[in-house]
Design a protein around this nucleic acid. Structure first.
Length: 271
DNA sequence: AGGCAGGCGCTCC
DNA sequence: GGAGCGCCTGCC
């Protein structure tokens, strides 16, 4: 089906923004995207072409791409006197914060710690093959879902040990066990305010401030959360000696973080 | 070939 | 409450 684009969206920039690890670049501005137990092929031309029904688009992908939000007007909030952020916003035009599954996001960012992005992707794909479900086929290759809570709880340890999780495996096992004992917890967390959500996330073994912030921003769509990794810390040190003006961009500091992250990493950070 | 990666828990003080 | 350190392992 076709979706008429009426706000900025750039699949390439989203794919490289570090919020999702399973998109596959098919070339020709097309991506294969598994999420919520489905897989869709999306091509970006003048409009968005999706290999799914109108019904599936409405029930899953419209929300997933956050198409109900006007990112152009959020980007226009940027103070033009703040050259760094303004340029970052220009460069990041088309980035959107996906509405991803909370459990998938939590587990993915536990895995992400002290791993490079290629290593994160490898590890997550192994995990999906180890205990996810077959959800599609692309050019003869099987596509698997990200495992749900039951999949993770019931998974053989030996299979998980083959997923290159390293010292993060016990983090995941404990987190999954805890969630299994309280199956309504993730839903309850959706109702918490940002601060309470971060605090609760950090109670999970292996989840610190960075993983909690990423999970909140990308998995609970808390657009004001501002994960600070090494790149962001360097960017703020270089450009905001007086501190970043968080008050000015509430409740969209997380979106500003995305612009800064990508911009600094691909330009200023390399100089 | 060996250091480093999009952190975290633990152990000191 | 914060600085220092070890950690699994794939990737460049």
């Amino acid at each position: 089906m076709k979706y008429i684009i009426n706000d900025e969206i750039d699949l390439h920039k989203i794919a490289h923004s570090g919020q999702c690890f399973r998109w596959r670049d098919l070339g020709n501005d097309s991506f294969l995207i598994p999420a919520f137990g489905k897989v869709v092929r999306v091509s970006q031309g003048k409009d968005l072409e999706l290999s799914c029904t109108e019904e599936e688009f409405q029930s899953i992908w419209y929300q997933y791409f956050d198409l109900g939000r006007d990112y152009t007007s959020i980007r226009n909030m940027i103070d033009k006197n703040d050259c760094f952020l303004y340029n970052a916003g220009q460069a990041g035009k088309g980035i959107r914060i996906l509405r991803q599954d909370p459990l998938e996001t939590l587990i993915s960012f536990i895995i992400s710690q002290r791993k490079s992005i290629p290593a994160i992707k490898t590890s997550i794909e192994k995990l999906c093959r180890a205990c996810g479900h077959l959800i599609g086929n692309f050019e003869g290759e099987e596509i698997y879902s990200f495992p749900d809570l039951n999949d993770l709880i019931n998974a053989d340890i030996s299979k998980l040990e083959a997923c290159s999780l390293g010292y993060r495996l016990p983090y995941i096992l404990k987190t999954v066990e805890e969630l299994g004992k309280d199956p309504g917890l993730l839903d309850e967390m959706k109702e918490m305010d940002d601060h309470a959500l971060i605090q609760r996330l950090m109670e999970f073994y292996g989840v610190g401030i960075k993983v909690a912030s990423c999970t909140g921003l990308f998995g609970f769509h808390r657009t004001n959360l501002f994960p600070e990794d090494v790149w962001i810390k360097r960017a703020l040190q270089d450009n905001y000696k007086e501190g970043f003006p968080f008050e000015k961009y509430r409740p969209y500091n997380g979106i500003m973080q995305q612009y800064i992250f990508e911009y600094y990493r691909t330009t200023a950070g390399n100089q």
